[in-house]
Nucleic acid binder design. Structure first.
Lengths: 218, 218, 218, 218
DNA sequence: AATGAATGAGCCTTCATTCAT
DNA sequence: TATGAATGAAGGCTCATTCAT
């Protein structure tokens, strides 16, 4: 994310050297591991440092306090997630709306699901974190990416592409999270995912994307 | 909810006297207030007790520990929420799918939005709370209520009502939460809400609910 | 014990009515039960009252505070113990030293061992209890009882009966406790008990009690 | 003691640096001081830390909880005590039984008496402490030390040295404690101590240690 | 630069005791 | 007189953060 973080959340130093980058990565990984293994309420700086193989002191050289660590972690996560979605969007320029929806949902779903423990850990780490700016920036990036893609669809005659687009994203992102939290068995999750594709497609079709005849889900 | 809570989360004593009931209510209210005013990580038993106008000792007479308080709070909240939705569902038996979707989304959205600070507070309080059972029971209640309603629609020819129903709920609940977290201005929120109605309707129509011609949103 | 307890440890009211005596007994029993089942550090007034089937309020009517309860409990225990030993001593007036030692040790050992959990519970309850006066009175009673018995032995030619007597009691009481704390298997305990008898007898014989020839242990 | 302590009672970290060792010693000393000055029931982590001149946090770096501190303290104490007795035993190899008993009792008595406040404090700290393993290990060490010594006596013809030995130790240790608890004036204590020597000697003589003629107490 | 011992505010929880009913 | 809800001081323990080495 290229947003300015709230001043107090900035990481202390930018990694200039390879060694530093390695250390920071180790700290990030350790944070996730602790989060998964012990839960948010047992996520302590000491534990993270220990798991990362560095001293607390060193950790505090990179992250002036716990919050900044979590902030940076979420930043990195959202950045990667956004990137994946952007790549997908670019790759589906000019395709049919059906293909777009299919690809968008598949990508996002996959990204969230492939390491569900990590996803869950990050959801929980974000609580009580002043990460509105992060969420916002992520939303904007996604918005831009999908909008450009949608518009590129042949035959589109959307009246309010902005609204349609933001709706689509809210629905997709929201549904994924909801399904996540209900801890349904994978088969049910997949079934819902496919229904979600159908639903989005029906919506787009109705909104002027394509004719009814093209409704198709892989 | 009439689920058995995990043993260790049970409240200590059921209020027998009116005085006790008052006390418990005060504690619940205080918890919400503290949650709103200070956030989850500053929610301490002392602060809650103080705000509720009772001593910590008294609090511990009703809730064996902090977690059980949060559990009970969420239980109460979900119970009321479920109740509201059930009432709506009953009231729309036999109506058209359009009316149903409209009413369902309106009710849920309203319930979540009218006291958005409370909603937000409860979302955050639930983190790290072993409330799976609660979520589950809530989901089942909702599932049952909307399913019965949907089936009662004239002309319905749904093939897999179970899947359709669960999808609908995941989408609606998920979207509400997502919109919530993005902190969009109310006008945008409402716009998305209406789009959501359209989307659900399009989905149901496509799935065999009614003919395209009836698509209508208030 | 007929000692004046430290003023602040006095029980609040003497049981005048049968009902009160029953209640007090229930409280004593409950105290012992809690002590055995949960240990000293979980011995709370509430738990005792609950187990005794009375309310805390009622308990506080008989015992102005926790300490007074424990004091009274120990008093009762030592009183009964002393009584048992006194009876034995009286019953062995004029017998041989060997019979006396045998009986004394047997009685005391039996009293301590027959309900070892109770004994242990009372040992632990006495810690940090200002019960010096109790111990003292108990010691004096024992001293008097055994001394009179010892002197009544035919042929005794003890030079310093007072010292011999106090030594005997210290050795016996101390050994019992020590064996107790080491948690040896019963067979070992019994073996040591018999050795203790031999030892005491050897001591008395040497000190002028009887001729070597009479050393005999049952 | 070289026993494995119950897992949960282990000290957290072994002192690697001189500074840490100093800290730990200060904590031990402080614990004893608090125990003496205030009693077991006022022994709080805060008070100990304060008296030791460290913060609670530091204390918890070395002892994971209060119990482990008391455990370690008792361990250290018993270790030193055992060592003293062992030295005495070694120093009296091959001597007469009379000299052995004299030395054994003198050493143990001295060790317990020279700082009677400390001894008393430690007795009381051990209540409700799961220190059976400690007691056991101590007993075994003592047993071994005194047995080897006893056997080395010229002319010994003990039939069951094991039983005799364990009896001797129980009697000596028990008597010391009993005398201790009765708070007799020092002169009485010493008188009893000498009688105890006589008694033990009479016992050993009778049990085949030596001829009656050698009974002698310093 | 890196380390990790030390700090201490603050959290959750218990329990002896009181007192309105 | 009996009850048990309410009290709140005090205890054990954690953990973000600092700083001497």
């Amino acid at each position: 994310m290229d947003v300015l973080p709230p001043r107090h959340l900035k990481a202390r130093k930018q990694p200039r050297q390879a060694r530093a980058a390695t250390t920071i990565d180790a700290i990030f990984e350790a944070t996730i591991q602790v989060l998964i293994a012990e839960g948010t309420h047992r996520l302590t700086t000491t534990r993270v440092a220990e798991r990362a193989g560095v001293s607390v002191g060193t950790m505090y050289q990179y992250f002036p306090h716990k919050q900044s660590l979590l902030y940076a972690l979420n930043e990195r996560y959202l950045d990667r997630l956004a990137h994946r979605v952007e790549v997908t969007c670019l790759a589906h320029h000019g395709r049919t709306t059906g293909e777009m929806v299919e690809a968008l949902i598949a990508t996002y779903w996959e990204a969230k699901t492939e390491r569900s423990d990590v996803t869950r850990a990050l959801y929980s780490s974000a609580v009580e974190l002043d990460n509105e700016a992060l969420i916002d920036a992520f939303a904007k990036r996604m918005d831009a990416a999908t909008r450009v893609m949608l518009v590129s669809a042949p035959n589109n005659r959307y009246t309010d592409i902005g609204l349609i687009n933001v709706t689509l994203l809210s629905v997709i992102f929201g549904t994924v999270r909801n399904v996540f939290e209900r801890n349904l068995p994978p088969s049910d999750q997949n079934a819902i995912r496919d229904e979600l594709k159908r639903m989005c497609l029906a919506y787009l079709t109705m909104a002027g994307g394509e004719t009814c005849a093209t409704i198709q889900v892989a």
